[in-house]
């Protein structure tokens, strides 16, 4: 009997996850500070989107990026600039953010992805720093003084107004996050996903069996940049203020850490890592005060003791619990 329950859960796990995400506000509403927790979950959703893209790049294609905050920032600033400087619709901002990130990533992919390993890490780090300097010095971004961004409204409804509180923005963010998660899950189980894993395992072997390495690497780089851009746009309208340091090296490392802790070669791991690292500092005051110390320690321990991240540990635990072998994919 219980085995069959496990089976059902396993069969429909993504749907169940969607249900849980969608019903959380109903549960949290009962708490006095529920609105605050929703605001934390919105941030967790935004980070999840970036980290899903990052995991596609790192976990599946095996390409590191120490400059992903730049794409996040590019998305955020596109949205901010389109709405504030030109007074256009925020949806145009979203479109621009996706388009711009895709184009920029496509142009950069060719030269950058020729580099491997540590050289790639350094090049992406340098790229991130150059973008950061641009964000802090260009007139259009508001420079280091920052840029105020308008709230997001759909058909005249402001999503995160005082009356509507956080609920609408929560649903907005997480429906996009779930959609992108679904796409990513499909992607990794498709031909592209298999090609990426082949590249990760051995580029030479992949090449010899006819995988067009450059093409797939470019594709996944563009996809992960677009994910970061979408997250940036959502972030811009949520936070309503953009400041260059939010898109610097610290942010890139924060995103990487989420991926590592959750598990780099797993889409679920991305969401897990993003959720944990966004919520912990908000919930534990110790973490908030000594955040960098705890961050560093967690990162080191995670790398040494669970290099595959928490997602792998949990799925092993699940297998033990349900007592089943290697079913499912």
């Amino acid at each position: 009997m219980i085995k069959r329950v496990w089976k059902v859960i396993e069969q429909f796990h993504f749907l169940l996850f969607c249900l849980l995400v969608l019903s959380l506000p109903l549960i949290l509403r009962r708490f006095e500070a529920g609105d605050y927790y929703l605001s934390v979950l919105v941030l967790a959703g935004i980070s999840s989107i970036v980290v899903i893209g990052l995991n596609l790049l790192m976990g599946y294609a095996g390409q590191i990026s120490l400059g992903h905050a730049a794409f996040f920032g590019l998305g955020a600033y596109s949205s901010g600039i389109v709405t504030i400087r030109y007074g256009l619709s925020p949806w145009l901002g979203f479109a621009l953010s996706i388009g711009l990130n895709a184009v920029v990533a496509y142009i950069l992919a060719e030269p950058i992805l020729k580099l491997k390993g540590h050289y790639l890490a350094m090049a992406t780090l340098g790229l991130g720093m150059i973008f950061l300097t641009l964000f802090s010095n260009l007139a259009i971004t508001g420079g280091s003084e920052g840029l105020s961004v308008a709230k997001l409204s759909i058909l005249g409804y402001v999503l995160n107004s005082r009356e509507l509180k956080e609920v609408n923005y929560y649903y907005f963010t997480w429906s996009i996050a779930l959609l992108l998660m679904h796409l990513a899950l499909n992607l990794v189980n498709s031909r592209v996903g298999r090609a990426l894993r082949a590249i990760h395992a051995s580029e030479i072997a992949a090449h010899s069996i006819g995988v067009d390495i450059a093409k797939f690497k470019t594709q996944v780089f563009v996809i992960s940049a677009v994910y970061a851009g979408v997250a940036g746009s959502i972030f811009a309208h949520y936070s309503t203020f953009l400041c260059p340091p939010d898109f610097g090296l610290t942010q890139s490392i924060r995103l990487l850490t989420m991926g590592v802790i959750g598990g780099m070669s797993s889409i679920w791991g991305a969401v897990l890592g993003a959720a944990i690292l966004t919520m912990l500092p908000q919930l534990l005051d110790v973490f908030a005060e000594y955040d960098i110390l705890v961050y560093g320690l967690v990162l080191i321990l995670a790398i040494i003791f669970m290099p595959q991240g928490m997602s792998q540990k949990i799925s092993l635990g699940w297998e033990k619990l349900t007592g089943q072998g290697s079913q499912g994919s």
Binding site: F17, W268, G328
Partner: peptide, 10 residues
């Protein structure tokens, strides 16, 4: 990459 008990989302 091959997740076996991938239900841990819940």
């Amino acid at each position: 990459g091959r997740k076996k008990g991938k239900l841990f989302g819940i």
